[in-house]
Design a protein around this nucleic acid. Structure first.
Lengths: 146, 146
DNA sequence: GACTATTAGTTAGCACGCTAAGCAGTTAGA
DNA sequence: TCTAACTGCTTAGCGTGCTAACTAATAGTC
């Protein structure tokens, strides 16, 4: 079971590396593209962290590297002087759209191993497991507080 | 889909942290316990790497930390003067057996979210996907060589 | 026997995740 | 109003993964 875990990483990483980015960087770029499509002018680091299920320091690091690559820019938020809004640069948008197409194709290629019924079952099972794990995490949090 | 990925980590890590070890360390201890049951006197770092799907430098690091914790010991291999054989100390064996019981229970707790049929489907689907990903990795390797 | 190739492992250096601790800026309560 | 609590983010430091480059031992080849 855990084998799937490692294999997925080892399949994805070289793919994104071919485009010059890492899996985490891809995740962030995609989140920013979506936010843009939803009409947001930018996302705060906290928002990014929530969407990517990642803690603030990790977000900072990825943003810093993407900024250095010129794929992303940050501007101070007008509302809250603590916050910074992250958004795609033209270069970043171009890259994420290009990689996105290849990625969709790659995902299709992998999931071609399953028929529709299996795919539906997998999706349902994973979502149930996610749900269960969230419950357990919550229980443990409460225990710790007690 | 990828959500499952992160959630699994975030559920497992605190669990093992409660026993003072990390997920990788657990993986290595378990591999060593299994090897012991199979009658091996110890595993070379390369063997461990293959079983855990991890590259040599990462193995070295985990072994170093486990050694520092007194859970594992290494002796030079008689056959090959380059190699080192890793095995559990008494303390390590005791810990892995204790954690193992709790771990089995925890896994059961999570997979209780699925019925038998779903579980079988999940297992089959994941193994098909693993197979597919291995194929793709192999194809890419061959492409690179060309 | 000597010369190369392969193999086991290490070290250096990076990306990415985390926690803990600290700094601003913001909000809320006395 | 003024202090206290919270929030957004950064820094420091660690564990784990990787690649690349290196050492040392083994194996193969002439």
């Amino acid at each position: 079971m855990l084998r799937y875990f490692g294999l997925l990483r080892r399949t994805m990483e070289p793919f994104f590396a071919g485009h010059g980015i890492s899996v985490s960087q891809w995740g962030m770029l995609r989140a920013l593209l979506r936010a843009d499509h939803d009409g947001h002018t930018g996302l705060r680091l906290m928002d990014l962290g929530e969407r990517l299920l990642v803690r603030p320091p990790s977000v900072s690091g990825v943003v810093r590297r993407l900024t250095a690559m010129g794929l992303v820019k940050t501007v101070p938020s007008g509302d809250d002087h603590r916050a910074r809004l992250v958004s795609l640069t033209a270069k970043g948008r171009q890259l994420v759209e290009r990689v996105g197409e290849a990625h969709v194709q790659r995902v299709r290629e992998i999931y071609a191993a399953l028929d529709e019924h299996e795919l539906a079952g997998l999706s349902s099972s994973l979502s149930k497991l996610c749900h269960r794990m969230e419950e357990i995490s919550r229980e443990n949090c409460e225990k710790e507080q007690a």
